[in-house]
Design a protein around this nucleic acid. Structure first.
Lengths: 361, 361
DNA sequence: TTGTAAGCGTTATCAT
DNA sequence: ATGATAACGCTTACAA
């Protein structure tokens, strides 16, 4: 069953059927009705390849995840992001092509890139690279291929969707200050990841706004993992912090363990606040206060943004930041615990994002 | 840049270029060389849509995950599976289209199904449904659309790739028996999931082979989650088991917690063995013995199997089982702990799978 | 509002 | 071994 046959059965021309299929208003009601009936009765669906060839649009969006080694999937960031992107695609009636670099091989990504981009397998790509300066981003810019980053672009050249990491970190630390904490440490993330940089920036800002100078001894960098957080906390202990802002929940959990082993009470001796809100289990069962970022929303919004770029190739970069949601449990020192679960937090953030004009580095 | 232009620059016809691109041997070495040079110099890649339209093959495989609600991604099963499938596709020079049902809505899956299958968006689908009787499977059979299940099909009608859950469970329980345990309980999974059924079957078989009758009081069903395992273990405690086979690591972890709270020592008072080997963290840090299933291999093999079905539409169902790998840590009662990590276990299973002739229900 | 006809960039079937 | 040429199933000016 194809367009031609539908046209024949409906007693109209192929053009008319095509118009009905593409919601072209220039069709009479009777004709539309007749076509739709035939389509429904024969379960007709247009052939994707023919459509793509003629329209020069594939209606497929790519989700590119470079360096998708096993460890990348250790928490639910990527799974949740994938879900968000998939939802966005479904909503927009597009397909989602998953472009994973499982090999970690530089040349493999190159081949994938050329095959998919130059072969027009997709109309655009969402890029989930956490590296601050991924060469693939520059290449897409040069090729003028529609793309949206998940995660802020420090250069500000490309379109992106991100959580407002800096603001969220600032809020978190301000909250600890509000609890009367004096020696607030931070377990920061890797210095080559923009999210880590922004979260550290927010930490510094909050201290400065309170008229304090960040003590270098109270900053330590780790790798976003639980063991990393454990070691970082061990290293911080001699400097006697009375609060810790961990740039990820995984690190916060490691810190929690280290504090426990050192015989320190949370929050009595040391208050603790994390970042991410990914692991529902950890949030639901534990008492960790954290900044929840709306990861699924990031994915959905990235698709919407990408489609605008696809439709308007000369569109200037679109940059969107989503606020994080503060979820207060016991670990930060709050006695009045907020029962908000991360799912509600996630939904609540829709419509609260803001488009960024210019990003101060 | 298109085929025609390449042909012009190489001084040959379009047909010859097409043959070179498709590795047709009927091309002279000089012609091939000339074409390849032009292709390389101009970074030419064939247009996917045109290719699909003419060849009636999209070179895209779908990965269908019904009911991909948040909880599905709570452990790394699906992420790992996705990675395996993605690797398989890359190896075979195919694209991967992710078909997630994020809504859970029945009608949404229907629309997706028709759009993708009838619109020929993909050449075939890998289906990751854990339900024992998913209607979508029957529909694909009826439409004679190439598909491979991840997880055994009890009816034996469709092609599938799975871990040999029954054999693995049998080995695990036999191992506990070998440790001299007398009252071996099991925390089984949901009765509508084939993996849970098979693992329970293996438990029963092992006991029977040892000349024992399974005590109904020592079997309890849970939902594969950690809290579920915790509650199940609590319910088992009054019956004083001296060993527990948990059908998932998440449930085993919950059981571990319950045992700890009850003041029982593992493995001294109660030996414990889990199933999955997914969470690298849990395996590396904890002392949980478990049956590791090669999830990424399942995905890779599913792709290979699916491609055979795509190429030979009248192929009889292909059914493959992979052995699980026993990883012994302290919890089962072994003193001589095996330091095998799950990555090595995963690799080791390649080539050890077997094709199933007939599956005994 | 509707129809006609010319592509879209390949593959595949023939000859040669 | 190579080259014409006709599909493949749709979109999209352009004409009516």
């Amino acid at each position: 069953m194809n367009l031609e046959e539908v046209a024949r059965l409906a007693g109209v021309s192929r053009s008319t059927v095509s118009r009905v299929l593409n919601r072209d208003p220039r069709v009479s009601d009777v004709a539309r009705e007749r076509v739709q009936t035939v389509v429904r009765e024969h379960h007709y669906h247009p052939n994707a390849a023919a459509r793509s060839l003629a329209s020069r649009r594939t209606r497929i969006l790519g989700l590119l995840i470079p360096q998708a080694v096993g460890s990348v999937f250790s928490d639910s960031f990527f799974p949740t992001l994938i879900q968000g992107v998939a939802e966005g695609c479904t909503t927009a009636d597009h397909d989602l092509s998953l472009l994973l670099d499982t090999s970690g091989d530089h040349r493999a990504v190159d081949r994938l890139y050329h095959r998919v981009i130059r072969g027009r397998h997709v109309d655009g790509v969402v890029i989930a690279s956490n590296l601050v300066d991924d060469p693939i981003v520059a290449r897409l810019q040069d090729d003028r291929f529609p793309s949206v980053l998940i995660g802020r672009d420090p250069q500000g050249r490309s379109s992106f969707v991100d959580a407002d990491n800096r603001q969220a970190a600032r809020d978190a630390v301000a909250h600890l200050i509000g609890h009367g904490r004096r020696r607030i440490a931070t377990i920061a993330g890797p210095a080559n990841m923009i999210a880590a940089i922004d979260r550290f920036g927010g930490y510094v800002t909050a201290l400065q706004e309170a008229g304090r100078l960040p003590d270098p001894a109270l900053t330590i960098h780790a790798d976003f993992t639980r063991p990393g957080g454990y070691r970082a906390m061990m290293a911080l202990l001699p400097h006697r912090p009375d609060a810790v802002f961990a740039a990820s929940d995984a690190m916060a959990t490691g810190a929690l363990q280290a504090l426990g082993e050192a015989g320190l009470r949370v929050p009595d001796d040391v208050a603790l606040i994390g970042f991410d809100g990914l692991d529902g289990d950890m949030l639901a069962q534990g008492s960790l206060s954290t900044m929840v970022q709306p990861v699924a929303d990031l994915g959905r919004q990235a698709v919407r943004t990408l489609l605008r770029l696809v439709e308007m190739p000369d569109q200037a970069p679109i940059q969107v930041l989503f606020p994080a949601t503060m979820v207060l449990r016991g670990s930060c020192g709050c006695t009045d615990v907020c029962p908000l679960d991360d799912r509600r937090a996630d939904e609540a953030s829709i419509g609260r994002e803001r488009t960024v004009e210019a990003i101060a580095s």
